[in-house]
Design a protein around this nucleic acid. Structure first.
Length: 613
RNA sequence: GCCCCCGUAGCUCAGUUGGAUAGAGCAACGGAUUUCUAAUCCGUCGGUCGGAGGUUCGAAUCCUCCCGGGGGCGCCA
């Protein structure tokens, strides 16, 4: 396709020298009409408009000047269709040559002209809380995007922006310290579950029902009710004051308080990293960069922005106005406290200027889009987005994602309305996968069945999420993701297993040594071979467009397409029973290449793969 | 009230950045197998792309206005 692009651009240059080289795009795409062509050029229409000429005549001129005899069937008047499409059919030897060329170490993925550093914000857990279904997307989409950049030869820096600072954390710290001091809990053995309950309790205790009290007074609800509410408000004020004191002590790293906080952090992060590992997602301790790690940078940032006149006072608070936005970015409250926007502005500075980011990508709920517009705008005004090496602004991007919904179309919750714990979801997917594996693959040893079930369950769960357009909500369904048919993780694993099985069999039953077909000449004859070859060739372009748009589902669509194309090939083109040895070896090589592309795609998405199932 | 996102087959979703006759899977129906792993393949059925205008050779895609659903809107994170 790259070649066609170049050849046609040259032809346009020869036919219309007056056209600026930058505007000689022949718009080569895969053909919509598989019967008519393999590729098509749509450039003649655009060019015709620009030159004020009949697009069909433009197409005719391009056809006359283009030189593709070595790779495509001859272009004629008949190649021009409709308003000026140029249909291109590749010669089968050229197709074989292109596939052969792709069958190298990189699978046709070029070394990037400019090496980017993508800083990827992912996971985003909060201390003292379990990971729930809402974190699923932040982990796996973020990990997939990071893997994609690594796969394309760029740098990826993962950042787990842990919510480990601020008043809510101080509230639970205060609560736990108080209980621990009273010997009512043991911090050494406290579970995350009980910690989360105490977290919620601490929030409640600090929330003053002032509105309720006002209502009660207004409607003269009786002294007993009012007295109770007054006591509640009084208690809440006390708890809040205590939490604020704790926050100050925490910020000063006062040992007794800090030790409690550290313990909360350890317990939460252990569970978080275990969950990420269960998901086969690359989120490790070294990726943690919690809000607390920015604590000392906030004051200086605010001071600098004030001094430079970027921040201004408004109703007692300090704000940064952002072009095109009604709502400014608030970086300091009127009581002098900082906000999460302040932390995020500081984070951009670190991510671009310390971590050398050229793209800073946030895998965070789409509902935060306004927040990120504000923060990006503020950071841009401050120049914190200027990469020190390139002297150019980094791309600040919010790869926002939609919600996970239940069958009822409402946010996915348990029957009692609680958040669904992520670890429970993972285990349930594996449990359901195991039931199927035990039935369908009863011949495998038990230990292997367990491994297969684990991979199938995790692949199903992740694929069901990644295969949807990121920005949209999607309906969560164990039944559908594990249906073992259609656009699912299991279907892809199955296709991969078949590419491997056939190669194993070649060695075992036909005594062909592995590697014999690695360099075998490829011949493309049958339609199914041709479709497979054309599909394989699309891989590098798919990865590039997925990275540009930050849309992993493009890779999903592609490997699903490839798996389907391979299944048809598998059905229609006998490999081990091919008519002759040359065909057999050629087809074995196609199987091997398909295997590598499928495995590469799955790995880039962060899905586990299998040898057998 | 203002802003953002979404609306495609009965259901769940794609649609290569404006290209030809809008595609998959599920569901329904029919066919293929003494298998190269049938967890598969092939076929049939199913659409005024929410609606109405506009832009142009050409619109699911871009613009405007409506309808419907969701979300967000200065000192929570």
């Amino acid at each position: 396709m790259q070649i066609l692009q170049e050849r046609f651009a040259m032809a346009i240059g020869r036919a219309f020298p007056e056209v600026d080289p930058a505007e000689r795009d022949p718009l080569i795409t895969g053909s919509k009409m598989a019967k008519l062509a393999d590729f098509q050029s749509n450039g003649a229409m655009a060019l015709g408009k620009k030159l004020g000429k009949n697009p069909r005549e433009v197409a005719a001129a391009i056809v006359k000047h283009v030189d593709v005899a070595d790779i495509a069937e001859p272009l004629t008047e008949q190649s021009i269709a409709g308003p000026g499409f140029i249909n291109i059919k590749l010669r089968s030897d050229a197709l074989a040559m292109l596939v052969t060329r792709m069958d190298g170490a990189t699978l046709g993925v070029p070394v990037p002209e400019v090496k980017e550093t993508a800083v990827v914000d992912l996971c985003g857990v909060n201390l003292a809380k379990q990971m729930h279904i809402g974190h699923l997307r932040a982990v796996i989409i973020g990990d997939a995007i990071a893997r994609l950049f690594e796969r394309l030869g760029h740098n990826a820096v993962r950042q787990n922006h842990v919510g480990d600072w601020g008043l809510p954390i101080a509230m639970v710290t205060a609560k736990l310290k108080q209980l621990s001091d009273a010997k009512k809990i043991d911090m050494a053995t406290l579970s995350l579950d009980s910690m989360e309950k105490l977290y919620k309790l601490s929030q409640l205790e600090c929330a003053a029902e002032e509105r309720g009290l006002a209502m009660a007074r207004k409607y003269r609800m009786g002294p007993k009710v009012i007295a109770e509410l007054e006591a509640q408000v009084e208690g809440a004020k006390e708890a809040m004051a205590h939490a604020k004191q704790t926050l100050v002590k925490l910020q000063a790293h006062e040992p007794a308080v800090f030790a409690i906080w550290q313990r909360i952090s350890d317990i939460t992060m252990k569970a978080c990293l275990d969950t990420c590992a269960a998901l086969h997602s690359n989120v490790k301790a070294e990726h943690s960069a919690g809000e607390s790690s920015y604590a000392l940078e906030l004051g200086p940032v605010v001071e600098e922005l004030t001094k430079r006149g970027i921040a201004e006072e408004s109703a007692g608070a300090l704000i940064v106005r952002v072009e095109g936005l009604e709502e400014p970015c608030i970086i300091r409250k009127s009581d002098g406290g900082y906000l999460y926007a302040t932390t995020d502005v500081a984070a951009i500075r670190r991510r671009v200027q310390k971590l050398d980011g050229t793209r800073v990508i946030y895998c965070v709920d789409i509902r935060q889009s306004l927040h990120f517009k504000q923060v990006f705008g503020a950071a841009h005004r401050a120049g914190y987005d200027i990469n020190l090496a390139t002297k150019k602004p980094a791309r600040l991007e919010h790869a926002g994602f939609g919600m996970v919904l239940g069958d009822d179309g409402r946010p996915f919750k348990t029957r009692s309305g609680e958040n669904v714990k992520l670890m429970d979801v993972i285990n349930e997917a594996i449990r359901r996968a195991a039931a199927v594996v035990n039935e369908r693959s009863a011949e495998l040893p038990e230990a292997q069945r367990a491994r297969v079930a684990e991979a199938v369950g995790v692949a199903a769960l992740k694929y069901a999420d990644l295969s949807n357009d990121r920005v949209k909500d999607y309906v969560f369904s164990f039944d559908r993701m594990l249906a073992f048919e259609g656009n699912t993780g299991p279907y892809l694993l199955y296709a991969l297993v078949r590419t491997r099985s056939i190669q194993r069999k070649a060695t075992a039953e036909r005594a062909i040594q592995p590697g014999t077909w690695t360099n075998a000449p490829i011949a493309i004859g049958e339609p199914a071979e041709k479709t497979l070859a054309l599909t394989l060739l699309r891989y590098p372009g798919v990865l590039a467009s997925a990275a540009e748009a930050l849309e992993p589902h493009r890779i999903c669509n592609y490997i699903y397409d490839l798996a389907g194309t391979f299944s048809s090939f598998f059905d229609q083109c006998p490999v081990l029973k091919a008519p002759d040895d040359a065909t057999m070896l050629s087809r074995l090589r196609l199987c091997a290449l398909t295997e590598r592309v499928l495995a590469d795609g799955l790995t880039t998405l962060g899905l586990p793969t299998l040898e057998r199932m």
